[in-house]
Design a protein around this nucleic acid. Structure first.
Lengths: 159, 159
DNA sequence: ACGCATTTGCTGCGTCGCGCAGCAGAATAG
DNA sequence: CTATTCTGCTGCGCGACGCAGCAAATGCGT
């Protein structure tokens, strides 16, 4: 049963999502340029500072989508810049725990907080129900994307 | 006046946004891998197929965030792959119009449509008001990001 | 207890996307 | 008609990344 009104809303949302995501890529690039880092490094710092516990190199590789070798190089860069420190894991001596250095990462999080404050003004004229709806949509889209990625990997190659 | 309930919603939304955006990067990477392209090329194809009129190399450069030289190389790759065609602009003979080739880009859009269909099921149990709220939030975030990028450019270098 | 497979992180090596600087041609200002 | 600006293209070098292979550590098997 086609509902033209709803269909139009879907279309609009799809279009705005694409613009929103494209804008994020440019934004992340601008943040990286500002800090003198690479977009991937900023992404990794975002992951590290968001998580309460330190991540291993393997976890960083999985969450950024690159190989363990490239993740090692990434941690090398961050360590050289003083953003993170390597710590051996006593439970599993193969693993290396990557912990952010607060003094150095403070600059990055301060920048995010500053930008985030302006960004929060957008939320001020949304009702609480609307905020919950937005949050819910993003969480579910996030979950779905993982299964979609898995689907893509098992799909036949078009080439 | 601090509203702890609202503050908590803001916090949740900020967290989910980061996860959502991180997931998109991985998703875009997976699509690129599946098609045998680079993430930037997929992003450019997304821009080209979304717009009703062809884009110039300069416009592609601006919207992807790379230089005109790199944009030229990007169009080279897409042209070599048969995804786009170059057409001279008669009004301004400096410009080169980049038009997508339907037969070739159909594979890409078909993949997006397929993935989008599953994605739409997420929207089915949102009310129309909620959909409008989500769309509005994304549009405003998109607009704000541009001014934020401009701010970052004019901000003093932390290095 | 002892192999055997798996996992983790690191390292040469080659590829290639990208920014930078400079270029000619076209359009516009003055 | 000259000067400036804008377009897109091209060498050049850098460096992030994937790949393959490595040793060390862990877990599983009998």
């Amino acid at each position: 049963m086609p509902d033209p009104d709803r269909a139009r809303l879907y279309e609009e949302l799809a279009l705005e999502s694409r613009r929103y995501l494209a804008a994020y890529v440019l934004f992340n690039q601008a943040v990286a340029d500002h800090l003198g880092l690479h977009p991937t490094d900023v992404q990794a710092l975002s992951l590290l500072t968001a998580e309460p516990e330190p991540l291993t190199v393997r976890q960083i590789a999985d969450r950024t989508g690159l190989t363990t070798g490239s993740a090692t190089r990434l941690v090398d860069r961050l360590e050289r810049g003083g953003y993170v420190a390597r710590t051996p894991d006593r439970q599993d001596r193969r693993r290396v725990l990557v912990t952010p250095v607060p003094e150095r990462t403070a600059r990055v999080t301060a920048l995010w907080d500053d930008l985030g404050r302006t960004w929060q003004t957008l939320l001020d004229d949304h009702s609480e129900d609307e905020l919950r709806a937005i949050t819910r949509h993003m969480r579910r889209a996030h979950d779905l994307s993982h299964t979609q990625i898995e689907r893509l990997r098992t799909m036949p190659e078009p080439d």
